[in-house]
Design a binder for these strands. Structure first.
Lengths: 186, 186
DNA sequence: AAATCCATGTAAACGGTTACATGATTTG
DNA sequence: CAAATCATGTAACCGTTTACATGGATTT
């Protein structure tokens, strides 16, 4: 999967592994994250498969970097993945729901503690989606010198919008739950 | 993680690998799924670690099964995981949002096609959460002879409630997006 | 002077999926 | 009689994470 994310980004501009990590960390990190070690390994594999080519690029006053450029084959690979209609939903793995499922045997105040921690974390996330992340879209353009068509940025925005709706939904769920938990016996 | 789910279930009653898979498939499968092969491997590992013990149990007219019982150490392991307050949110990986992020270069009607497929899939899921899955809670009790305290079933219900709110939220997100997409030029 | 950023990579471990292998019993 | 269900397991593979290793340039 990381493969397709990397191809998708390299369509905008040639980049090094480090650059790609930076790009990811200010764009798709809230729904897809990757460690540098995995990025480097994946890029190596992609070059072997002819999806990208790399060359060392000297930099004045800084150490040189290996810059990857997407190939025709890489573009085709990305497009064949992307034009394919998905007819099944991704299977979601939500560890916190497993935890919730088995929460019945916990003490009332332990449960309330966890709920309050979750609430505050989701409030922070909501705030981030509403206030911090929108600026990142501008940062992507500025710091990576990328000027995508407006249709592209519309979809960047929708992923942020998803984050906002998701966090609001979780907060509602938590609030509902807390009402019943407050009425538990000690 | 599967480890904790298995321990959590085995607290209710001793079960075979096959039984556990059945239990999972009618209870937590919409936020945590596992293949039989993984369940068997995990149970084996758990027995080596002393978290469960197993014995072959003869059945009249059916092949015998290996029934696992949680040990004291297993209960302690589950509880030390479960009483620990989670202070960070799970990292979510949502491949469909990666797909969405890069959707800008697609043709308008390809995009609309995908949106409609997603919409119909989420409508199906919502229907499942509202109508099919609630019956599963009764099936768990009946088919596995498990009678958990009402507090336990409250939390089982909340995971269903999460599913309903999630699907409604996604449908809202899709509807919002579709409004803008409908106004795209060809 | 220390910490952070830039920059690249390797190796081992881990959790999960897919494929393979077997065979008895029950249901249509 | 065929298909589905019950039941257990192994082996290979794959993507991801964690830990290890290095070192120059910039900021505090």
């Amino acid at each position: 999967m990381l493969l397709y994310a990397l191809l998708g980004i390299l369509r905008y501009a040639p980049m090094s592994g480090y650059d790609l990590e930076q790009f990811i960390s200010i764009s798709i990190t809230h729904f897809w994250n990757a460690k540098l070690s995995q990025i480097y390994r994946t890029l190596k594999k992609m070059e072997e498969d002819g999806l990208v080519v790399s060359e060392m690029q000297e930099q004045d006053g800084a150490r040189s970097k290996r810059v990857y450029t997407i190939t025709e084959a890489g573009i085709r690979e990305f497009e064949s993945w992307h034009t394919q209609i998905e007819t099944e939903l991704d299977e979601i793995k939500q560890p916190f729901l497993v935890r919730t499922f088995f929460m019945g045997t916990q003490d009332k105040d332990k449960i309330q503690q966890q709920m309050q921690v979750w609430q505050s974390l989701h409030e922070q996330h909501l705030n981030m989606f509403e206030n911090v992340l929108p600026q990142n879209i501008e940062r992507v353009k500025r710091e990576h010198g990328i000027h995508p068509p407006q249709r592209d940025t519309f979809f960047w925005w929708t992923t942020l919008r998803f984050g906002i709706l998701y966090e609001q939904m979780v907060l509602q769920w938590l609030a509902e739950m807390q009402q019943t938990i407050d009425q538990f016996d000690e």
